[in-house]
């Protein structure tokens, strides 16, 4: 399939009083037409920074794209001017944020907020935009859209507001939709509804989605492919099946082991020991090595390259080197893998 977005060797730093924080250290990935790519990882792993860089929404004062390319539609987004970027944001690439309670303007009617990108990007008249906004509200499943369109955000519940945010994002039929933890701030029943809605809409309007989350359960639900991020790098990437049934990186094992399961025989939920690396002083070797019980000497000395597992599956761990000792995934991962298989 055709690549719609390619991120090549992206390096992003934040300049702070303490020094330069290397938040993203050489990220490579591509997004194919019509697919959903999930980016998972813990807080501070660089998932949000990567997507904000694609949208060029990083704070201009202290962030810097040190090197790398973000190729979209033959253009390198990292080199565009603000004005050129404004024409892409909301039209070709749009974004949904984490907290629907704060991401709508409290003093503007919901209708106006949906109409804004339509009037701006598609030169619609007010009447046409209003008609389209009404359709969009219907599309995202808001009852009584004729009434709701004139209301303000505070008259909507959290789940309904997230539907509105989705309607805004989809207004111009974007080629790429970036969803930055869109369900994290919602309660579980609403989460399921929003995920259902997003899947449904993707089928209808054929857009590619980058889905950021730290919830592996959500990933299994929505994604075609998964990229696991750690310490500003992608450590494993593959299809959902590959990453869930045949995980290679010890960090991915840790993530899978720490998923709660309903019939857990284990007494305690697994937690990855230690804390994420301080990217003010990134480690010389593999960033995960200090927390990795399978770490070898080389992990401390040199960063592992991406080893190929299959055509679509890559992982950055020295364990995949031909000279490395064979290591089996821990029992908790195996039992979960069996369960995933069984569920299928």
């Amino acid at each position: 399939m055709e690549n719609i977005l390619e991120v090549k060797d992206l390096n992003i730093s934040f300049h702070t009083f303490a020094g330069e924080v290397q938040a993203i250290r050489g990220v490579n990935f591509e997004l194919k037409k019509g697919e959903t790519l999930a980016i998972v990882g813990e807080s501070g792993s660089g998932k949000s920074v990567t997507t904000k860089a694609i949208m060029r929404l990083l704070p201009p004062g202290n962030s810097e794209i040190k090197q790398g390319q973000i190729l979209f539609d033959g253009k390198d987004l990292s080199k565009l001017t603000d004005r050129q970027m404004q024409k892409i944001r909301g039209k070709d690439i749009s974004m949904i944020f984490q907290d629907p309670m704060t991401s709508l303007n409290p003093t503007m009617t919901v209708g106006k907020q949906i109409m804004e990108p339509l009037i701006k990007h598609q030169n619609m008249s007010k009447a046409a935009a209003s008609e389209r906004a009404l359709q969009l509200l219907k599309l995202v499943g808001i009852p009584k859209p004729e009434l709701r369109i004139k209301q303000y955000p505070h008259q909507f519940s959290g789940g309904m507001r997230q539907r509105v945010v989705i309607a805004i994002a989809l207004a111009c039929n974007p080629k790429i939709l970036i969803a930055d933890e869109p369900t994290t701030a919602l309660d579980v029943t609403i989460q399921a509804q929003i995920l259902e809605l997003m899947k449904d809409l993707q089928n209808k309007i054929d857009t590619s989605i980058i889905f950021i989350t730290h919830d592996l359960g959500v990933v299994a639900n929505v994604a075609d492919r998964v990229a696991v991020m750690y310490g500003g790098k992608i450590v494993e990437v593959g299809t959902v099946d590959e990453v869930f049934y045949n995980p290679q990186h010890p960090y991915t094992w840790g993530l899978i082991s720490s998923m709660p399961s309903l019939d857990a025989k284990e007494e305690e939920l697994y937690a990855i020991p230690g804390t994420p690396p301080n990217l003010l002083h990134p480690p010389k070797g593999d960033a995960f090595a200090p927390r990795n019980e399978y770490a070898m000497q080389i992990d401390l000395e040199e960063q592992p390259p991406m080893f190929k597992v299959s055509d679509t599956h890559y992982a950055a761990t020295w364990l995949l080197h031909p000279d490395a000792p064979k290591v089996e995934p821990p029992a908790a991962v195996k039992s979960r893998m069996r369960k995933f298989m069984g569920a299928k």
Binding site: M55, L57, G90, M95, H121, V165, I168
Partner: peptide
């Protein structure tokens, strides 16, 4: 956040 969303809309 809503200013960030406005930016993301291309304003």
């Amino acid at each position: 956040d809503y200013i960030l969303l406005a930016k993301a809309k291309g304003a």
